[in-house]
């Protein structure tokens, strides 16, 4: 197991958000985290990356415990995070955004340079001097992913990467994610778009009300339509 999460509980203030979340991700696979708005997907990611102050449970990444560590330490171990809502630095240019994400190379994982990322996301190449605030939603989303890759992660958490994008852009996004997987990256993506998730992912985990309700392959999920019906309202 590359990432192992056991009995993760998280609170925002007094509100208990995650209840005993348990997950396992094998190296080189893609796991889709499915569930509705407010189900706990974003909190799960934020907890893994060290952005939620009150968390209990055990998280091991590459065999080392990372729970309770500050975010920057977790990221420097190779856990990349692509937040929802893009969150690029709108006052910075594309190049500068990439600079913020840059980390030293790490053995055994692809070492990304801006040039390689401009190849992966051809739209960005023409925009390197453009300010982040003057880009379209799709371009911003690609920049968010590129910026995280600059940290040379071995595992990337992607929070709703297809959300609010035109289908044409979603297609490009899918291609980029498949390419990342081909390069040997491990991915966890949270999604509401089942089709998108199915296209890219090897396994699915359904989270609802802060609890894991299902974990298995898409074939298992298809074999139990009542699960999707109950938790995903499909």
């Amino acid at each position: 197991m590359m990432l192992e999460v056991r009995d993760l509980n998280a609170w925002y203030g007094r509100a208990h958000i995650l209840f005993d979340v348990t997950l396992g991700v094998e190296r080189g696979t893609v796991v889709a985290l499915l569930g509705r708005n407010g189900a706990g997907k974003t909190t799960t990611f934020a907890s893994l990356i060290g952005l939620v102050p009150s968390v209990t449970g055990a998280v091991t990444f590459d065999g080392e415990p990372i729970q309770g560590r500050p975010a920057h330490e977790i990221v420097r171990r190779g856990l990349g995070y692509v937040p929802e809502d893009r969150r690029i630095f709108t006052g910075l240019t594309v190049e500068e955004n990439l600079m913020v994400g840059a980390q030293p190379p790490r053995p055994g994982v692809p070492h990304w340079t801006p040039e390689m990322l401009y190849e992966l996301f051809p739209n960005l190449a023409e925009l390197r001097k453009r300010q982040g605030g003057h880009m379209s939603g799709g371009e911003q989303q690609m920049l968010t992913i590129a910026r995280t890759l600059m940290g040379n992660p071995s595992l990337v958490l992607l929070d709703e990467p297809s959300e609010g994008l035109a289908p044409r852009i979603v297609e490009q996004m899918a291609q980029a994610l498949i390419e990342m997987k081909r390069q040997g990256l491990t991915l966890i993506l949270s999604e509401q778009n089942l089709h998108f998730a199915r296209l890219i992912s090897d396994r699915a985990t359904i989270i609802e009300g802060g609890r894991v309700r299902f974990a298995g392959t898409f074939a298992d999920l298809d074999a139990n339509p009542e699960i999707s019906a109950q938790h995903l309202a499909v």
Partner: peptide
């Protein structure tokens, strides 16, 4: 550049390993 980025969104800067 990091300072300018943090001026806008310091949590995101931390989430990028700074």
């Amino acid at each position: 550049v990091l300072v300018r980025a943090a001026t806008q969104d310091r949590t995101m800067v931390a989430a990028l390993g700074v």
